[in-house]
Computed example of a mutant assay.
Amino acid sequence: MQIETLRDILHWTASFHQQLSECLSHCADNNTDQRARMMLQYLSEHENRLRKVVSGFEATGAVDALNTWCIEYLQKHPIVRHQQCNAPFKDLDATQVMNDVINQHQQVIELYRYLASRADIPSAQHLLDSLSALEEHEVMLMVQAGNRFSDM
């Protein structure tokens, strides 16, 4: 996928959440730890909902923000497709699964933060700040759910 604009970043992020959702779901069927299976299934559903929300930003985002170029950043820091399914989620316990998923989300948040700090137009900065806040909020929700699974 050629990423040149913030619209492309949204597509990439939605794809990231979709792939992660599919991988988590697939691995849930093969994990022997019941808590881990429940965590994987919950996270899969959560990632699928998050994909839909991120996709909605394209419909509601300002056209000038969506068309903002971000090639300079990406030339210096290319986005490497996450290979989630290469991670053995099926062999991890619930805590390890949560830590891996949080780490992947932190990378997306850092991308949004950096792009927001470099945005020249207010609408692009607002879009990126909103996306960053969304991802941070979703990480908090996932951690809370993970804590509830640990209490079981």
Results as ranks from 00 to 15, higher is better:
139 V>Q: 14
150 S>P: 00
13 T>R: 15
98 M>V: 05
95 T>W: 07
127 L>H: 04
16 F>D: 02
92 L>D: 11
139 V>W: 06
37 R>P: 02
1 M>H: 07
52 K>I: 07
143 V>C: 10
107 Q>L: 12
65 A>C: 08
141 L>I: 03
20 L>G: 04
121 I>M: 14
110 E>A: 11
43 L>M: 12
20 L>W: 00
59 A>P: 01
118 R>A: 01
130 S>L: 06
146 G>S: 13
14 A>W: 00
81 R>P: 04
62 A>N: 04
132 S>V: 03
3 I>D: 00
131 L>V: 05
43 L>D: 04
4 E>Q: 15
32 T>V: 13
111 L>R: 02
49 R>V: 05
21 S>C: 02
11 H>F: 12
63 V>T: 09
81 R>M: 13
42 Y>L: 11
46 H>L: 06
83 Q>T: 09
109 I>Y: 11
99 N>C: 05
147 N>E: 10
105 H>M: 04
1 M>R: 12
89 F>D: 00
99 N>W: 12
32 T>D: 06
16 F>N: 02
80 V>I: 11
11 H>M: 04
63 V>E: 15
52 K>G: 10
27 C>S: 14
102 I>T: 08
125 Q>F: 06
53 V>T: 09
35 R>A: 11
61 G>A: 14
37 R>N: 08
20 L>Q: 10
25 S>G: 14
114 Y>V: 10
2 Q>E: 13
67 N>E: 14
31 N>C: 03
75 Q>W: 05
128 L>Q: 10
72 E>R: 15
29 D>N: 12
147 N>I: 13
42 Y>H: 12
76 K>C: 03
117 S>W: 12
125 Q>C: 10
